[in-house]
């Protein structure tokens, strides 16, 4: 168990600055997911914790101790790589045991630990197999067992599910959540998939271009995005963003838009439009609606009353509308002066 802290950390590759002066705390025992588009620096951050891509300047602290000078193998961290990085020349047992042997753990203890770890991931019967004879999901489990067996205080995972098929991914997601519950150690998980982030994390760290956009619980980051980037990145389909006057932008989630045959006089935001596409997804239906100005809105709903080319009105009530200022930061209701300006802009219409 360990908390992780970044203090004024900068990372450069040559002259290219990937992460600049980041400060961040990851709570002990949390399941923290670093999420963001490719190239945002999330994997770089993870590798700095592991020590396999050390920071250019600043400090990384694990459990309050500066680990800058400590070798990766002595930091008490374990990592699951995207391509698993299993040793192909060793069988499953040797793969799991390798770290233990290096740490000079006696044979009897090793046997117990290997048995325990392989049982936890369901690999007992495969211990003598070579990795090349295993399926993708099984290799994934080998990588997990190899990380687990060392009883690390921090688990690092770099997109560990991205090479699995969709069904297995959902299954492994659940298993990882359960694993975290069982082990109660700090998990730091990197992904570009917001669904993974939302479903597994207790804390989501959203990054873009090397900067942290927001740190919050999944529901918080979804319901209360701090800026335009967060609002657009989290949620699928993405939040609808409409530009008002003075650079002010308004946003609402697709499920908060209500389609009707007539304009709703009580709605705070209402536009007339035409259904352009309709995707029936089973449980819900996603419409895209285009207004006369050519703007497209995504609307999802459980009901499915409209067809393509139908004329509809899209209504949204104020409590589901988010405002963003010129600087792309959220304008909160508490900020009365600016909020009034937003309402004024909304009243004046599009």
């Amino acid at each position: 168990m360990a908390a992780i802290e970044f203090k004024n950390v900068t990372k450069k590759f040559g002259n290219h600055v990937v992460i600049e002066n980041i400060n961040l705390k990851i709570k002990d025992g949390s399941f923290t997911v670093l999420v963001g588009p490719s190239g945002c620096g999330k994997t770089t951050l993870l590798r700095m914790i592991a020590g396999i891509g050390p920071q250019t300047s600043g400090q990384v602290l694990i459990d309050g101790n500066d680990v800058t000078e400590i070798a990766p193998g002595k930091r008490g961290v374990a990592m699951v790589f995207q391509n698993y990085a299993i040793y192909p020349t060793m069988n499953v047992r040797d793969n799991i045991e390798f770290g233990l042997k290096n740490n000079k753990i006696p044979k009897e203890e090793r046997d117990i630990l290997v048995k325990e770890a392989s049982e936890k991931v369901g690999l007992e019967e495969y211990l003598d197999r070579k990795p090349s004879t295993l399926s993708g999901g099984q290799r994934q489990r080998v990588a997990l067992a190899r990380a687990m067996v060392k009883k690390p205080s921090v688990f690092l995972m770099d997109e560990p599910l991205s090479n699995l098929d969709a069904k297995l991914r959902v299954q492994m997601r659940v298993e990882l959540i359960e694993l975290h519950k069982k082990l109660q150690t700090t998990f730091v998980y990197v992904t570009h998939d917001q669904v993974e982030a939302m479903s597994m994390a207790d804390t989501v760290i959203l990054m873009n271009n090397g900067f942290i956009q927001q740190i919050a619980a999944p529901e918080e980051i979804y319901r209360n995005p701090a800026n335009l980037f967060t609002a657009r990145f989290i949620g699928s389909p993405a939040m609808n963003i409409v530009e008002l006057n003075d650079g002010i932008r308004l946003g609402f989630r697709p499920e908060r838009g209500i389609l009707s045959d007539e304009a709703d006089p009580k709605a705070d935001f209402s536009v007339e439009g035409q259904v352009v596409t309709r995707e029936m997804l089973g449980r819900e239906t996603t419409y895209s609606v285009r207004d006369p100005q050519g703007r497209t809105y995504m609307v999802t709903g459980l009901d499915d009353p409209y067809k393509v080319d139908d004329k509809v009105y899209l209504n949204v009530s104020l409590k589901h509308i988010y405002f963003f200022g010129k600087d792309e930061q959220r304008i909160y209701e508490e900020d009365a002066q600016q909020y009034q300006a937003c309402l004024e802009a909304l009243r004046r219409g599009l």
């Binding site: 396999i52 070798a71 790589f81 990085a85 299993i86 192909p88 020349t89 060793m90 770290g99 290096n102």
Partner: peptide, 26 residues
């Protein structure tokens, strides 16, 4: 692959051990 060496680093394998247990067999 570089990641195998990184995994070995995280497994606390010294350079001699990495050479004989990973590089040479590979």
């Amino acid at each position: 692959p570089e990641s195998i060496y990184e995994a070995a680093d995280l497994d606390n394998a010294g350079s001699v051990r990495t050479f004989f247990k990973i590089t040479l067999p590979m």
